[in-house]
């Protein structure tokens, strides 16, 4: 047990060591309408400051690190300190400037608004 807490403590301080955390794929829901794409991700136990959302060259990458401090002796353990990580390809029509995210009850809600040019447009027909 003492060994494990040592590992987790160095993990917090040392950026290189955080890679030693187990990586898991979080579950996601993806919705879309004319205005935006919505991504809901389960990330239980991840704090806001340990969450990174990156959009680069058409790739959306989510990474959230959960550090659990243990209390006493573990009788059983089905989840631990992990990195939730997942990558998606997003269309180039996303307006990267306007992307926003909220984290509530361990669920990340990511809004990816479409750029004006990509939205469907009603074309007015002029009578000649």
């Amino acid at each position: 047990m003492s060994n494990r807490t040592d590992v987790m403590k160095t993990g917090e301080k040392n950026i290189e060591k955080t890679r030693k955390l187990d990586t898991v794929q979080p579950d996601v829901d993806i919705y879309e309408n004319e205005e935006e794409i919505l991504v809901y991700t389960d990330m239980p136990g991840v704090l806001k400051e340990n969450l990174k959302v990156n959009i680069d060259n058409g790739t959306l990458s989510l990474s959230g690190i959960r550090q659990l401090e243990s209390r006493g002796a573990a009788r059983w353990q089905e989840f631990g300190s992990v990195e939730f990580r997942r990558n998606f390809s997003v269309p180039q029509t996303i307006n990267v400037e306007k992307v926003y995210a909220e984290l509530r009850d361990g669920v990340l809600r990511l809004h990816l608004p479409k750029s004006e040019a990509a939205k469907p447009r009603m074309i007015e027909i002029n009578a000649a």
Binding site: D42, M43, P44, G45, L68, S70, R71, G72, A73, A74, R75, W76, Q77, E78, F79, G80, D105, G106, V107
Partner: peptide, 24 residues
């Protein structure tokens, strides 16, 4: 299994933790 749980024992008490994302 859902939710995933951890059980810790610490002398006078038990502590159980469960992953319940999205639940109020």
């Amino acid at each position: 299994r859902f939710p995933k749980t951890n059980l810790y024992e610490d002398g006078e008490l038990f502590e159980i933790r469960a992953e319940v994302p999205g639940l109020g």
